[in-house]
Amino acid sequence: MLKRTLSAALALAGLGAGSLIAATPAHAVGFRTTATNLNIRSDAFLSSSVVKVLAGPANVDVDCQKAGDTVTVAGRPATRWWAHLPAHNGYATVAYLDTPGDKLPGVPECIVDPNPPTGDVTLADVQAMFGSRIANPTLVNTGLPSLNQAMRDASINTPRRKAAFLATLVHESRLEYNIREIGDTRVYGGRGYIQLTGDFNYGPAGRYFGIDLLGNPELARSLQWSAPIARWYWTVARNINPMADALNMGKVNAAIGYPAGAEDGRRCDSFKNALRYLTGSVPSGVICTRSKAYEGDTSKLTRAQFDALGQAPGTVG
């Protein structure tokens, strides 16, 4: 059984795994933004929620910086560094700060709480989280070693990320690695943990792993490939970990790719059950519904197209 690694204080504060845990420098460093309507995000990822839109250019204080999604702006070097702005409680990409390089000079890297659980997920764990949804315990147990490896490879290593990932898979496949979507006779119909669907997913996933999924789609529900494909979708086809960090299960569901409806609530309930098991409580701020931009079926969108849905018109970063 997983140890409950989040403290009660952390849970009550609603802080995620990426939250700052060390004291910030006594003196922040001043910079100036170079954009109007700059998105300040909850974490250093383009898929992270926008906590504020900062009109500008404006003077800002930066207490630390962390690596995240790469941003490229014309005339500037590409940068994966994001500045933490304590006065605005969020992160801005360094691409829109007045510095010539890709990283801020004189600013330390942020110290974050990795919050790693102390053990892999067991059959007893998922049964406690999801009850009767675990319909075939023997089959689920057979797949758990490969699934735990995929979770390690995908940095699904905090209670929030594990809860979101497992809640998603238990609704997609009952955590059965070799399941085929019932009644789906399409060549590229749903298969495996993540129910990989469509040639637009089989093709890129196959190329990523160097296997011919288009020519042999049954590989998607093999013990060898089902879990890695779920990891690929979670981190490559989409960037879902930051959504889990933000407790935004509505956006997680949109990223999986089906229209909004009653299923969103059921999956969010499973997410809460898993969080309760893993941490002893459900933090405030869980988001079960989707914003209007994510209400439709997003399954055929590329990652860039999906990420663009959350970008407010006229904003950058």
Rank of each mutant, 00 (worst) to 15 (best):
R4N: 03
L6I: 12
A11R: 11
A13R: 14
G14E: 04
G18K: 02
T36M: 12
N39W: 09
I40F: 02
A44N: 11
A44H: 08
L46P: 02
L46T: 07
V53E: 09
L54R: 01
V60K: 08
D63H: 03
D63P: 02
Q65I: 01
T70W: 10
T70M: 13
A74Q: 14
A74I: 12
W82E: 08
A92L: 03
V94C: 09
V94H: 00
A95P: 03
A95M: 00
Y96W: 04
T99Y: 05
P108R: 10
E109W: 09
D113F: 09
P117N: 14
T118P: 12
A124N: 04
R133S: 14
I134A: 07
A135N: 13
T142R: 07
L144Y: 08
P145M: 02
N148D: 09
N148L: 01
A154P: 00
R160F: 15
R161A: 08
K162A: 13
A163K: 05
A164K: 04
L169S: 04
V170C: 03
E172D: 04
Y177S: 01
I182G: 13
G189H: 11
G190F: 04
G192M: 04
G192I: 10
Y193A: 02
D199F: 12
Y202K: 08
G203P: 10
G206H: 07
D212E: 01
D212I: 08
L214H: 03
A220M: 04
L223A: 15
L223H: 09
L223Y: 03
L223W: 09
S226C: 08
S226L: 02
A227L: 00
I229R: 04
I229A: 02
R231A: 13
N239I: 14
N239S: 13
I240A: 10
A244H: 08
L247R: 01
N248V: 06
N248E: 10
Y258C: 07
Y258P: 10
Y258S: 13
G261P: 04
E263I: 15
K272R: 07
T279V: 08
S281I: 12
T289M: 04
T289N: 12
K292M: 15
G296K: 11
T298N: 00
T302F: 04
R303Y: 01
R303P: 11
Q305L: 09
A308M: 08
P313C: 01
